[in-house]
Computed example of a mutant assay.
Amino acid sequence: MRHDKAAMVIDLARGMAASAEGLTLNEMAGQLRVGRRTAERMRDAVLMLFPQVEEVSDPPTKRWRIRGGLSAFEQAPTATEMLELTKAAAGLRGAGEAGRAAALEGLERKVKAAMRSTTLNRLAPDLEALVRAETIAVQAGPRPSADEAVLAEIRGAVLAGRPLGFIYSRPGAEARSRSVAPCGIMFGRANYLVAADRESGRIQTFRLDRMTSVEAGDGVAAPPADFDLAAFASQSFGIYQDEIEEVVLRIAPEGAAEARGWRWHPTQTIEGQADGSVVVRFRASGMRELAWHLFSWGEQVTIEAPQRLKAVMASELAAAGRALERAQS
């Protein structure tokens, strides 16, 4: 068996060991990014090498799992995997996310503690060299806040399906007591609780750093049955949720290559034009955040739609012009 096939067999065995309910053939094919026939051959190879594999009936299909995990030898991480874990923790700590960074750092210590000393000694020099050779560029923007106690309270309420109460304060507005059914958390330039208002049922977002006295309440408060956090997050260009609109942007020929490699939005389409420009289309809300982003494209971008985005851009440009005039006076 060729080396790459052997690696796929080990990877599939890890997937079976990591899944409590086991993997179907379709899930194996998806994990390995191969066709169903290849997945069947890989499964048979795992069955031959790992006799502890269990076949679980799950009508109308079957699942296969490895209970009890794999040996330390089969589970030893690579230097690259450990590097990415170290970088992820460092990136969170640099962004001010001390609680989330501590969770990853704790995981890193547990992984290293579970490794054989010979493996760890062999890995250490490469990992140290890679850590020195790579870093994460610090980007300008707000420092998100994710207090460990607040996160723990929100996560506990989500898991238990209980209501969440807190005091919410916004600049220029009076602090209000809120009671919501928590749906999840969105992490980004700022961290937000996504929740359904218990009176209106409307899905809203709340910045974590503006929430105080956060406490799970009694009773049941589950999110709407059809709510999908990933789908909700993808509606907006950034975080702010408002009316969804058809966005059409034309990128000049000199910026076309960069625009083709840019991830604008999950719903994007990019069309080449005869003059070398490209037209980017997507459906999204959050026109203000989109306008802020379009500043970075300068004269290379023309807003063709919607009209509201043009108005927001004009307003932001006017505000920037007034600020410059004050600075020059």
Rank of each mutant, 00 (worst) to 15 (best):
V301D: 06
E128P: 12
T267H: 02
S296H: 14
D4K: 13
A20T: 10
L107K: 13
P144A: 00
V247S: 07
E316I: 01
T86N: 11
S19H: 08
A13C: 09
Q75F: 07
V220G: 03
A79W: 09
G22S: 02
V158N: 04
E128K: 09
L229F: 07
A90T: 11
A173M: 09
V214A: 01
S200I: 03
T24G: 09
D197C: 02
G99H: 08
H3A: 15
D58R: 04
S57Y: 12
W297K: 08
M287K: 06
V220S: 11
M1V: 07
E271P: 12
G161Q: 06
I10E: 15
A124Y: 14
L164E: 01
R43F: 03
Q307D: 15
I239Q: 13
E325V: 08
T135Q: 12
T86L: 08
L85G: 06
L309W: 00
G286E: 02
R63D: 09
D197G: 01
R33C: 04
A89P: 06
L104S: 04
F232A: 00
R260T: 06
E84C: 13
A173S: 10
F73S: 15
A291L: 08
L92N: 10
L324S: 07
R122D: 14
G255P: 00
S177H: 13
T118A: 03
G286D: 10
D44N: 04
N26T: 15
D44L: 05
E153F: 02
R210G: 05
N26V: 15
A39P: 00
G69R: 04
G201P: 04
G172M: 01
E174N: 04
V150L: 10
P51Q: 00
